[in-house]
Every structure is written in structure tokens, then in C-alpha cells.
Amino acid sequence: MGAEFVQLSLTPMLIGVLAAIACALPGNFLILRRQALIGDAIAHVVLPGIVVAFLITGTVAALPMLLGAAGAALVAVVLIEAIRRLGRIEPGAAMGVVFTTLFAGGVLILERTDTSTVHLDVEHALMGNLESLVWFAADGWGSLIDPAALAALPEELPRMAAVCLLVAALTALFWRWLKIATFDEGFAEALGLPVRAIGLGLVIVAAIAAVAAFDAVGSIIVIAMFICPPAAARLMTSRLGAQIAWSVGFAVLSAVLGYVLAGYGPLWLGQSNALSAAGMIATVSGALLGLAALFGPHRRREGAVAGA
């Protein structure tokens, strides 16, 4: 656990942890509002946005990617709403039509353009490149206080940290509103809270978290972290505050354990090649959910008879 760890594993692990937290926080509310699959839809829709942004600017710089992804998310929301209204189609089906079509379009454009010079392909979009976010300038724990080395941190780390902070701050700031609007929309409306705006704001925050995390860790982690840690947390407690704390704990545990298992697991088994960290993080989060579903103290519906 010396210089090599700081150089190769510290930053990817931190980025994974931050991405997991940023997605898990809004995920709690999405799950309680039965909108869990919005995270899934957002993660699919981000791809065409990023591809189009690359086509226009010719670079994979952060800002155009973020703008492109945000634009695509906006297009998707407008399309879903338009199809729902014009065709009188139920929202779930309208969502299914839009996100598969946009994703298919994104893949097609990606395959038709020459992206061999940059790190942009379908597999990268799905699985991210967490392993490659290493901190070359570091030569040990001392680098954490070395300004020159800190300046050479992978740019994803400060970006992900900022987004994670933003998401956390917004959650804390709108805590009461979110809580009331999530559990009793009618009551929230009677209090005069902007219920629709709260719902929309939640989706926007989820999209911001998804877009930032997508770039660093790929869409599998985004979807897994939106759903698995909050779902597991829901089985551990019936209080919202505690649920959020559990979900953050599960998210951190998934990210760290998943990264370690992917990087070092094969070594322990006598093999030399690392496994996909993104895939392993998603797997661990699923396994944690499985454990919570089997043993979680609040795994049953309130009022349901045990063993029913």
C-alpha cells in the first residue's frame, strides 16, 4: 500500500466513490417516487449527446461533452412529453420508444464516424475507463501535499468531486421539500410547494450526476448506483434520513470493494489480468442489495405478515 497504490489506484477509487455517491443520493428519491428507470433512460440518452458534441467540436473536452449530454437529455424529455401528448401513449412506453431510439442513433453515428484517435466507442461508453484515470505525477502518499503533483491530478477527480458536492448540497438544501413532495404529493401541493418543479429539479440533478459520472465510469455504474444502493438502503430502515446514510454507505462500499476485487481479485486467484472495475462495482452493489433483501430488517412491506 505504498507509492504504487497512490499512483494507480487511489484516484480511480476516489472517482468511483464520488460517482457512486453522486448517483445514489438522487437515486433514493427516484426509487421512492417509483421513477427508478429514469436513471436507466438518462444513462442511455447521454450517449448520442456526447457523440454529437464530439462531431461538432472534434474534441472530447469536458464542457462540450457535458453540454451535448444535457442537450440530449433535454431532447429526450421533450420527445417523451410530445409522444405522450400527441399519441396519447402511457409514459413508460413513450420513454421506452425514445431512449432506445436515441441510443440506437448514438451508436450508429459513433460507428459511422472515425473516433479511432480519441477514447470514444460503445464499450467505453458502457464500461467507462475507470482503470485509466491514474495519477502519474504521484510518487507516494507525500504527493497529497505536493502542489505540483496535485496539479496533475486526472481532471475527472475535481469535476466529480464538484458534482458530488453540488448534489449533496442541493439534497440538503431542498431536504424538507423533497421529503414532503416524495411521500405525499397531495399534501405538498396543499402546502403550496411547487410539486412539478421539485420533480423536474430532481430529474435534472439526476441527469447532472449521470452525465458527470458517465464520462468517468461508464453507464453501467451510473444505472447500478442510481438503483442498487438506495434500494438496499430502503430494506434497512424506514426513515428517510437513515436510508440516505445507508445508501451512501452502500455506494462507498460497492465502489471500494468492487474496485479492489476487480484490480486485485485475479491476482489473489493467481491470474495476472485485472477485470472490469465498472462491471465489478455494479456486481458488488447488486450483491449487497441481495444481502439486504435476504436479511435487511425492513425488507418486507410495512404491515405484511412475516413469512407471508
Binding site: 417509483r34 427508478a36 447500478a224 477485470l275 462491471g279
Partner: peptide
């Protein structure tokens, strides 16, 4: 068997199984 809604169950299975497949 748990208090999770179907959409959460769908999302969880989708991402965890797919993640394991990628591994």
C-alpha cells in the same frame, strides 16, 4: 417478497447482471 417496487427490481437486476456479464 420485499418492499421494493417492480421498477426498482428491474433496474437493480438489469444493472447488476449486466455488470457481472461485463466482468
Amino acid at each position: 417478497r420485499t418492499r421494493l417496487t417492480e421498477d426498482a427490481a428491474i433496474g437493480a437486476v438489469l444493472s447488476a447482471f449486466f455488470g457481472f456479464g461485463v466482468v
